[in-house]
């Protein structure tokens, strides 16, 4: 399954706190993703919380967009990526 890097903008900053509500929100995203065979691997967030870079596995870019809409998450750009491990060749 292809892996994607998804760039998202949150002009008001991303509100995902490490508490019960945050956990519930993340779980609901994971549940919606599963309906389309999409898996959220992990994300990177800028210090101002206005941009996130998310690593996802999914069957197609369309599946990524579909769950984003359902989850109410913005999509700026989807890029297909592969893992490059700097220590692999040592």
């Amino acid at each position: 399954m292809p892996r994607y890097l998804i760039e998202r903008s949150f002009p008001d900053g991303l509100a995902l706190e490490p508490n019960k509500q945050g956990c519930a929100a993340a779980n609901s995203v994971i549940g919606t993703n599963a309906e389309q065979g999409v898996t959220w691997i992990h994300s990177y967030v800028t210090p101002n919380k206005k941009t996130t870079y998310c690593i996802y596995d999914g069957p197609s870019p369309e599946a990524i967009r579909k769950v984003a809409t359902k989850n109410g998450l913005p999509v700026d750009k989807i890029t297909e990526v592969r893992v490059l491990d700097p220590y692999f060749h040592m």
Partner: peptide, 8 residues
């Protein structure tokens, strides 16, 4: 995909 700038 072309018009969205999506991969694949």
């Amino acid at each position: 995909r072309v018009r969205r700038g999506d991969p694949a």
